[in-house]
Design a binder for these strands. Sequence first.
DNA 1: TACGCGATTGAGACCGGTCTCAACAAGTCC
DNA 2: GGACTTGTTGAGACCGGTCTCAATCGCGTA
Lengths: 354, 354
Amino acid sequence: MSEAGNGRREVTVTDVARAAKVSKATAARALGDYGAVSEAVRDRVLAAAEELGYRPNALARSMTTGRSNTIGMVVGDIENPFFAQATRGASDVAKAAGFDVVLSNSDEELESENAAIAVLLAKRVDGFIVAPASSVDTTGLRAIQAAGRPLVLFDRAAEDLAIDTVLADNATGVRRLVELLLQAGHRRIAFISTIAHPHPYRLGDRLGSTSVDDRVNGFVASLTEAGIAEPARFIRLNARRDGVGAAVRDVVADGATAIVASDSLIAQAAFRTVRELGLGIPSDVSLVAFDDADWTSLSAPPVTVMAQPIHEIGAEAARMLVRRIAGDGAPAETVVLPQRLIERESIAPPPAEG
Amino acid sequence: MSEAGNGRREVTVTDVARAAKVSKATAARALGDYGAVSEAVRDRVLAAAEELGYRPNALARSMTTGRSNTIGMVVGDIENPFFAQATRGASDVAKAAGFDVVLSNSDEELESENAAIAVLLAKRVDGFIVAPASSVDTTGLRAIQAAGRPLVLFDRAAEDLAIDTVLADNATGVRRLVELLLQAGHRRIAFISTIAHPHPYRLGDRLGSTSVDDRVNGFVASLTEAGIAEPARFIRLNARRDGVGAAVRDVVADGATAIVASDSLIAQAAFRTVRELGLGIPSDVSLVAFDDADWTSLSAPPVTVMAQPIHEIGAEAARMLVRRIAGDGAPAETVVLPQRLIERESIAPPPAEG
DNA sequence: TACGCGATTGAGACCGGTCTCAACAAGTCC
DNA sequence: GGACTTGTTGAGACCGGTCTCAATCGCGTA
């Protein structure tokens, strides 16, 4: 009761200065650990601060220094293990460099993303790490650039904009995956993604996310090189969370014998659906996916995946951002990290034609 | 090049005021949408702002209003699906109420937690949502209270402190799980947790986290009621991430026929280890766990779990916090949410004695 | 003894908003 | 017509730090 009057004003530098019998400027120097202060005065000020329970106000400091020591991160959905890991990677690097991270979920929607960016811009974060909802409509990203704040993209690039970006080598990854399927004898291979797209995929379409775009292009190229007639026949986009099942049913009914899932959440839904259909993996349908989600090694059968260095993607993005914030003015750079194939047991030759 | 000089000063209310030929106060009223401004003037100001590319400075606003519209959240590890989900739940509610969330990982370590709290306090977040690393050493939490900031705990309570808390009903949950194992005929049941503890568990020990404490107590009580002689014999704490395997080997070698895993990450490691041991689940060892992680329904066999309403835990914590920030002065409250049993196929009678 | 120099300290402006308060205009009421 | 409202606007203090600049002090040196 005595000292804890709760509606009280916070203790400020001025209060400490008065208690230590020095000027506000000197107290601030001692507390903020800048400028020159004699040992004796510093001790006196620090003691007074301790005594009064002084707690620095980072807002006020940011006001004058222009730095908030905060970075804004906008991801699709923190619940998605991909983003959770990338966030952790980024957050560790950021913390080590003295930054906190404010997190925002865009749900892969442009409006949410733009709103989040506006708020973060208002909060004067020192920089941004964004997995852009769209590689095409980049108004939000432009706003960041216009405000002169450093920005690093991850997982997807933004077309026509010079922005630092950290990507995984999806083009190579998908080819390796398809190759495996081809070698096993598959000819009717499906590709399923939840990416929003205004209509069914047509050859040459440009997709909203460069990472999916790279995968689809590599997928098509591989099939084409293998001499497969309609390489896009089993590509299904726009499968919302609960639409993956329908997409799987669809391609399987149409005769697909193998599925490439564009991420682990899709793979999970596909896995379930194939099972519900009473079909065997890999006896009836082979399944491969991106991301080494933990379930993929525990399932029966464990599934062959193209693992991405997710942690490192986030960490590298943060490293680049920190460098930019520190003033690195080098031209924008794109870092492409390799993916790694983990072969398990979800591929088998297609069933003999009935 | 023309308008985008990049080292430039930000556009301020004063600039807008000058451009709109009104006073700073009036411009601020129009831009901040408070006080009274005539329609005509408002339009003029907004137009000027648009023209100049005015972007509000939330820091400056927070300075005077004393509100940052930000809440600080400290979790063990955002990569842990439990925390990822809780964070999402909290973050959605927070956003709807106009708050951003700054995220910090404590790695379940007191020092990290306290450091994070200090930083967030300095940033003048409007409130805190914390999964405290320790229910016993609560210095960090006290600091928050001393600073007069609202605080809500989740997943674990803090002893001896009156703080709003959102918990799952672990006591009931663990009993239900043990009951299932008992009914199947198990007598040598293990409980494995990664919680830090200075020495092997002894009956009556108080654990660092109330949620684990509740589980262990319920576990012991259930076994005791069932007339089992040494109920604590197979309790293994302190199993660090990579120590779960060793703990499992240990209890299995000692004759345990069933394992209760205190969370889904532990369950995952246990599942792997039992397999590596060449043993069958559930033929040789039965396994149950807390949290309905996605892999638990995909594994072979799928595992019986006690699901927690994780999303809701986070959401409810945020709701309580928002209420407190709004000024609700009611006494601290503890909300206990029910867990839900999901029976799958990881329980069988213990193997016949060799 | 006077001068120069570095180290310390204090005064006060400043960051970009919000907020209080007074001034003023246009009605409104008696 | 005068007093009183109500609505709108401007001046300037204020939030809690940082930063610039000038003043002061101690001390080595010419």
